[in-house]
Simulated assay, not measured.
Amino acid sequence: MTILITGATGTVGRHLVQQLTEAGHEVRALTRDPATAELPAGVEVVAGDLTDPATLPLAFDGVTAVHLITFGGSDGAPLTTGAELVRLASRAGVRRVTVLGGWEESTVEPALRASDLGWTSLEPVEFMSGALEWVGSVREHGAVRLMAGWASAVVHEADIAAVARVALTEDGHAGMTYPITGPQALTPAERARLLGTAAGRHIGFEQLTEEQERERLRAYGYPEEYVEFGIQLATQPPEQAAVVHPTVERVTGRAARTFAQWAQEHADAFRGA
């Protein structure tokens, strides 16, 4: 069976391609630029753009399972081509689909609900890799600087991929919605301490005022709409943010990776900051 991975060069996609390849599955990786994909040997890398279904028929040809992301393009906007993507999957005879959801539904989820495809919704709360956005702050201030101080059950990207891998290769997951978290809820201050331990240096935490948070978000070049969303998120955390779910262990049979493990894997980024 050939498994198509969309978003193959992304944070979760790379882990998923690696895990499936190591397990001996035939993997087809979709990317807008195959020349820069840098994926493992043996992976079939094909060009295509989820925002342009006309580029995709060959990518779907002959696949039996598909991992879908719900955004496309460099701006991360929700896909508007969900109906076309689902039609391509149905015509190809796809039997299993996983969908990596975002904050809000795109056109992909309603199209799947209206189809006869067996699909699994993956719903991680917050990626551990979001901490990489703190590198600049650590470099300049020796601290993580944020307005939000609430705890989040952040999840390792490899664990999201591991749940997807099982759902794409084993029966019994169609129709399931999987909330995916790490094994504990940690505040930014707690994560900063763990990063400092891994990097062998002190990394503090400074809680910003609302205006300082606006300045921080604007410095990334985010539009005002996103800045306001960030302020809302900092002051009104999602109810599910700190809830730990046993999904990773229940689906994969292995305990979820800790943030301390993630910090060790990325210590060099903070050691040199």
Rank of each mutant, 00 (worst) to 15 (best):
G7V: 13
V17A: 06
Q19M: 10
Q19Y: 06
L20P: 02
T21F: 03
T21C: 05
E26P: 01
T31W: 01
D33Q: 09
G42D: 06
V45Q: 02
P53Y: 05
L56C: 03
P57G: 07
F60W: 07
G62C: 12
A65F: 06
A65G: 08
F71M: 14
G73K: 14
S74D: 15
D75A: 09
G82D: 08
L85H: 04
R91S: 11
R91P: 00
G93M: 12
L100D: 01
P110D: 06
R113H: 13
R113L: 06
D116L: 12
S129I: 04
L132V: 11
L132I: 14
E133C: 03
G136F: 00
G136I: 03
G136D: 15
V138F: 09
E140Y: 09
H141P: 03
A148H: 04
A148F: 01
V154R: 12
E157T: 13
I160R: 01
A161F: 09
A162I: 09
A174M: 06
A174C: 06
G175Q: 10
G175L: 07
P179T: 10
T181L: 04
G182H: 02
E190Q: 15
T197Y: 08
G200V: 10
F205Q: 09
E206Q: 14
T209M: 11
E224A: 04
F229I: 02
Q232S: 08
A241S: 14
A242M: 07
T247C: 10
R257N: 07
A260W: 00
W262F: 15
E265K: 10
A267T: 13
F270S: 05
R271K: 13
